[in-house]
Design a protein around this nucleic acid. Structure first.
Lengths: 323, 323
DNA sequence: CGTGCGTCTGTAATCGATTTCTATTGCCTG
DNA sequence: CAGGCAATAGAAATCGATTACAGACGCACG
């Protein structure tokens, strides 16, 4: 691959001049032409590694998500990407697999590769991002909080959990269970808290035995639903605190021959790729893509030097009533 | 952030020695301890940009997929990631959005950022990867072919298309339509060719009017299905050549009140996140994750210096009969 | 005891760009 | 016509690591 030295030699100018042409600094039109022709002829591309080393900054932002196979996060990724492209940044997507070790590894890479910034959907409550912050690399949290004082884009988890639950109550269900995420999942667990609170405030007793924790995935949701169905007095409805556990719960219900609307189902999030259009499942749409564009906007502000105190943006869900 | 010079100063050794400790070269145990302590104290992390510049090689591989929101590609990505992690490589996932310009951009980045290699699911038939090849960066094609003589991992598209079609014929359908991808999509379009061929060989007439092209996405599939339903003699069954168009077709059918098994549906790929367990839709499972691990294995071989002639691995689909 | 080999270490070159500093030129102004 | 400023361009320093080369030392062997 050609370097600027070879381009410079061919064009009969100094490497500095080549660099200036590349970066739109003032260079006489004739030399600029010479350089451009030489670059063209040699099929020159700048070496980003060298550029980034010198500039101490790259034009890539990292997006860390806990589960790349979850359509919620891929939609979020699309949002980030769309916004980043607008400003000439590229996005690299890193799957942390809900694994703090992988997460740490990717954060370390983002840091030592001089990436422009990081958008992080933390896998666990207390992800350590002090390394990035020390180097003044901007970090924006999305969907879940960190313990750090940084920009964040969240959804209104309490009201999402509450409206999912309330919808089922309004439809006449009384023994409403909840399939929640892992205990240490942080913000999204506010949804199960909202479920508990809504149940109590509507006088539907102590629902503790109807609360099951799973792992945010399809199989976890299915197993949890199966467990619930084996209780002495099984529930007559269920709230799943994320989309995939909702899918799993529905699978278990179909296997047991209990299909909505006979059995009430409400999901925090949307059922991905559902084919039976207006199904009898209550869904609370969460604006995943918008979460992404918002996070990217906050991050790009910081990259461009904005240094106001940390901001938190909270987006709201939108309930889609069962048809 | 600390550099090896600062570590060297604190430890009372030369930067070269610090580097040797970092890379496990022979260094006396005492100095090694001194260096490790100093590195620890300063919270040192190596600067990958500098390292990569010097080594002309990074430990990151790029995976370019045309649609990050398609579960087929996220499963493939998981496969790549799992395999790469085993060998200490990280994966960055780039969404090309079926857009040749974005694809070119990401390829250019992979090249100029000295990435170790690229796994590419090309957006169009003739993606230009000559830049990478010039620099001897290994590239592996997956799911779709390139015009270049490189390693590739494919699926047996003809037999996938043929068995999806045959399954519908065997279930008694006769007017079987096909929702295919874009005309220039390359390999996956062998599936619609297999559909046509199967129809002809079974004596089901000239099916040209039952062939519709869409864009591999849900909405495209839905629109295509709607078009088909408006024909004078509408089909009684449909083959979708990828998973998302299958979802779209099903949506259109539900809206029209035509649900399987009354209307025959076969999908090349799996319906993602389906909730109604043994549905009456024929699916041909494509081993997406395995595609990913295989591609990663081929790529890592090349990265480690393997220089045998280009290999092509073809994996087979597995038919899941409608329940 | 001298030669030779192997181990450990430091100095300095290197990767390929950007950028500071300096020099030259030309133009404008008083 | 002298002085000053702007525009242009080159030489060399720089970013932070790795590594070729060379020097110093110790040990074994003839």
């Amino acid at each position: 691959m050609a370097t600027i030295y070879e381009v410079a030699a061919l064009a009969g100018v100094s490497p500095a001049t080549v660099s200036r042409v590349l970066n739109g600094r003032s260079v006489s039109p004739e030399k600029a032409r010479l350089v451009r022709d030489a670059a063209e002829k040699l099929n020159f591309t700048v070496n980003r590694t060298a550029r980034d080393l010198r500039r101490q900054h790259s034009e890539v932002i990292a997006l860390l998500v806990p589960d790349i196979e979850n359509p919620f996060f891929t939609a979020l990724a699309r949002g980030v990407e769309d916004r980043a492209q607008e400003s000439g940044y590229s996005v690299v997507l890193c799957n942390t697999d809900e694994d703090p070790a992988k997460e740490t590894r990717y954060l370390e890479i983002a840091n030592s590769a001089n990436m422009a910034g990081v958008i992080l959907a933390p896998s666990r409550e207390h992800t350590d991002i002090s390394g990035l912050l020390q180097r003044k690399k901007p970090v924006v949290a999305v969907d879940r909080t960190t313990g750090f004082d940084i920009d964040a884009v969240m959804v209104d988890n309490r009201s999402i959990g509450a409206s999912a639950t309330a919808a089922l109550i309004d439809r006449g269900f009384r023994r409403i269970a909840c399939i929640a995420g892992p205990l240490d999942a942080g913000s999204p667990e506010e949804r199960s808290q909202a479920w508990a609170q809504t149940m109590r405030s509507r006088g539907l007793g102590d629902p503790a035995k109807y609360l099951v924790h799973a792992d945010f995935r399809v199989d976890g949701g299915r197993a949890a639903m199966a467990t619930l169905l084996e209780l002495d007095t099984p529930p007559d409805a269920v709230v799943a605190t994320n989309n995939l556990m909702g899918v799993g719960a529905l699978q278990a219900l179909f296997e047991a021959g209990l299909t909505p609307p006979a059995f009430g189902v409400a999901v925090c999030g949307e059922l991905p790729f559902s084919t039976d259009a207006p199904a009898s499942v209550t869904q609370v749409r969460i604006p995943a893509r918008h979460l992404g564009t918002t996070a990217a906007t906050l991050l790009l502000d910081r990259i461009e030097g904005d240094s106001q105190p940390a901001r938190t943006v909270v987006l709201r869900g939108e309930i889609l009533e069962a048809g």
